[in-house]
Design a binder for these strands. Structure first.
Lengths: 199, 199
DNA sequence: CTTTTTCTGTAGCGGTCACTAAAAATAGTC
DNA sequence: GACTATTTTTAGTGACCGCTACAGAAAAAG
């Protein structure tokens, strides 16, 4: 299963590591947004020339899709990680919001959530659709989880969390400090408990 | 003062109306974002050719600047309008959030706030700077107003409102319905009152 | 009238964009 | 060694970007 050496295929071997290239692409897209980072820059930063780029990823959007997958499978998936630690719905949501407050502030030049804000206003419909699909999938997961305790108000409570996260991501991109996001996350968490207890 | 006919100047008269052109530009930028709408499209939509465009506005960013001014002076300035009706801080903030929930959903193809989301991830630093300046100015106005009742916690409470508005704008751009935003605005308003009463 | 001023249309500038055709290079296989 | 398969390099492509030079057109001023 860990046979990374898989009996080298026929032709000339690839001189770069696809996984590492995707990792670097995640950073670039996160730092600067989908539109701002061009294929030329990706190539030079990843150390590959355009034809190799297109042979490996198909298109710029194709690389972006892989980058999004890598990103959502990482520690940046705040809800997924919060869910792993278990607990009540309110506890998991609180951890989700606090984790976002911890991760979203600028690190290495990248701020906010790549999925939520990496393609906002992008001129590329394909890139926007990819991000939108992941955004909706994340919201659906949160809603289904909330429904385990609050089935009647799952949608409304999920929207509360999703919109709060979107606001935090936008604020982080605009330079909000970790302390600012933490204070908001705590207030949002209190609001969630309060709203969940209503009706 | 209403002398719209101001003793026609010397040269060939302009064949288009600058005010109307700015209005159309507001709609275009709001609908599609700064980067996605090019000078060629602006020209054809506004009925003017490139040289007239540059004589009138200086640059694409110049037109965007005027469009932002027009936008912030309109009913889209949710806090400014809420402030006009007076009342306590909590009342004005509630009206601000509810007004945002009313106007952010898609209308005529445009959703969210032009200032908050019209240039997110734009490749043009000038356009981003213009929007960022207005964003910060708006947050400062809200903070100063909140300080009239809650001087010690004005920053924290202003961040609560600003991040909530940013989230609502992002959600609206992603297709959130008016009812969704209204429910969030009401919850955020309750959270504001609750947080303001703390400590 | 001629002159001056300002705007308009035609045409196109240099630059960047995502992307690709063609051939050389490097491996396994026969 | 000859052949096949794959990736590499070189050198671009056409399309679009924001923007402008230039000359003609339309007004007031002399």
């Amino acid at each position: 299963m860990t046979a990374t050496e898989k009996a080298q295929p026929r032709g000339r071997p690839r001189t770069f590591d696809i996984d590492e290239a995707v990792d670097r692409a995640v950073k670039l897209f996160h730092r600067r947004g989908y539109d701002a980072v061009g294929v030329a820059e990706l190539g030079s930063e990843l150390g590959i020339k355009p034809p190799s780029f297109y042979a490996a990823f198909g298109s710029k959007a194709g690389l972006f899709e892989q980058a999004l997958e890598r990103y959502t499978a990482s520690k940046a998936n705040v809800f997924g990680n919060a869910l792993l630690e278990g607990g009540s719905v309110a506890e998991v949501i609180e951890r989700t919001l606090l984790e976002a407050a911890r991760i979203y502030p600028e690190q290495d030049g990248a701020a906010g959530c790549l999925v939520m804000d990496g393609t906002r206003n992008s001129t590329d419909p394909e890139a926007r659709a990819l991000a939108a699909a992941l955004k909706e999938a994340g919201r659906a997961r949160i809603r289904d989880f909330i429904a385990t305790e609050f089935p009647a108000r799952a949608d409304e409570l999920a929207d509360l969390v999703a919109i709060a996260l979107a606001g935090m991501s936008a604020a982080a991109r605009d330079g909000a400090k970790a302390s600012t996001l933490k204070a908001f996350a705590e207030a949002a968490s209190r609001a969630f408990r309060h709203e969940a207890a209503r009706a």
